[in-house]
């Protein structure tokens, strides 16, 4: 029981349920299944991105370039689709994942081989990737009319009662769950975050593991590039501008420690969902959407204060009488 109460994910889930209940008390329609599914669908992209970012943060790194990667891959796929509408969508999606992974791999190589701090690398690629969107598009937009019907329709379709976009999130979440809990690579992300020195002794290549983390966050950004563009049916330089911080916010709220080594798939998903629920609840309760940003800022601060209290070391327990109490 004690361990359940210590579990951050439980508390976060309760917080989300509380928000839903509070809003429902005044606006019963908010918690209708249809609306809840909409929220889930709206949050799907953020959930996937948060999972990718979590892997990077676990390794004591950070990827500020995810949103720019998403915009660049999205622009590439939109332009390819506009020029060659006959290319089947699954192939385009595979291409997105590859391009995204390659961009992430570029970050990863700089971190691995040159040992440049991740925040510097991704600060640079954040601007480079975003600038490249302009270079390849010449500043022009790709709009709905230029995209093939399949391109737009795929993720809007539904499958077994759920939108395809939601299915993407479910499958990605399941893959991440298996990756993070059941594979040596997944465990090595935790290991190098908890104790890089010990990881070396255990035979883990710290640099290569970080590289892999960046490839994963890149691949997810690439996948979300397609999903974002086909969902909002516009590809421009401004796509997901500034979104990198929302992704990090989801992770922090989800209990992923910026110091590395701590974080779960469920936590990252719930962190994203929390932001999604709040954002969807605001218009319902008649609060201007301009409150969104301040609320997510306050949520980040609250989450980090609460998490830090849990992580704070209590000092050594030396006194006999203090054992078990602390």
């Amino acid at each position: 029981m004690k361990s359940v109460l210590k579990n951050r994910e439980i508390w976060l889930a309760l917080a989300i349920v509380a928000v839903v209940i509070l809003v429902t008390l005044r606006f019963p329609r908010f918690s209708q299944p249809g609306n809840l599914l909409t929220i889930l669908n709206d949050t799907s992209i953020l959930m996937m991105l948060a999972l990718g970012q979590m892997v990077v943060i676990l390794t004591r790194s950070i990827d500020l370039s995810m949103a720019s990667n998403l915009a660049l891959t999205g622009m590439i796929v939109a332009m390819v689709n506009a020029a060659f509408p006959m290319i089947p969508i699954p192939l385009l999606i595979a291409g997105c994942v590859l391009v995204g992974a390659a961009l992430g791999g570029f970050n990863g190589m700089l971190v691995w081989k040159l040992d440049i701090p991740p925040i510097v690398v991704t600060l640079g690629t954040l601007t480079i990737f975003r600038g490249l969107v302009f270079v390849i598009s010449g500043g022009a937009w790709v709009n709905a009319a230029q995209m093939s019907p399949d391109f737009i329709a795929l993720q809007r379709g539904s499958f077994v009662g759920l939108p395809v976009l939601t299915w993407f999130a479910i499958v990605v979440a399941a893959l991440f769950y298996v990756l993070m809990t059941r594979t040596p690579a997944g465990r090595s992300f935790y290991a190098i975050g908890v104790n890089p020195t010990a990881s070396v002794y255990t035979g883990i290549n710290v640099g290569r593991t970080k590289f892999l983390a960046f490839v994963i966050s890149g691949a997810i950004s690439g996948l979300c590039g397609y999903l974002w563009i086909s969902r909002y049916v516009i590809a421009s330089v401004e796509v997901a501008s500034g979104y990198e911080l929302t992704i990090i916010a989801a992770c922090v709220i989800g209990g992923v420690s910026i110091a590395g080594g701590i974080g779960t798939v469920a936590g990252a998903l719930l962190g994203a969902l929390f932001l999604g629920v709040v954002n969807n609840a605001l218009p319902v309760i008649g609060v201007s959407p301009f409150w969104q940003m301040a609320i997510s800022g306050a949520a980040i601060l609250l989450a980090v204060v609460l998490n830090a209290r849990g992580e704070r070391s209590k000092g050594r327990v030396i006194l006999k009488k203090a054992e078990g109490v602390a």
Partner: peptide, 24 residues
């Protein structure tokens, strides 16, 4: 409160500009 500055200032980054949005 002994919090990591990168997370704190990501939070206040949203908070400060968020208040500007609330006002304007």
């Amino acid at each position: 409160l002994k919090l990591p500055s990168i997370v704190v200032t990501i939070g206040t980054m949203s908070l400060f500009r968020g208040i500007a949005y609330i006002i304007l």
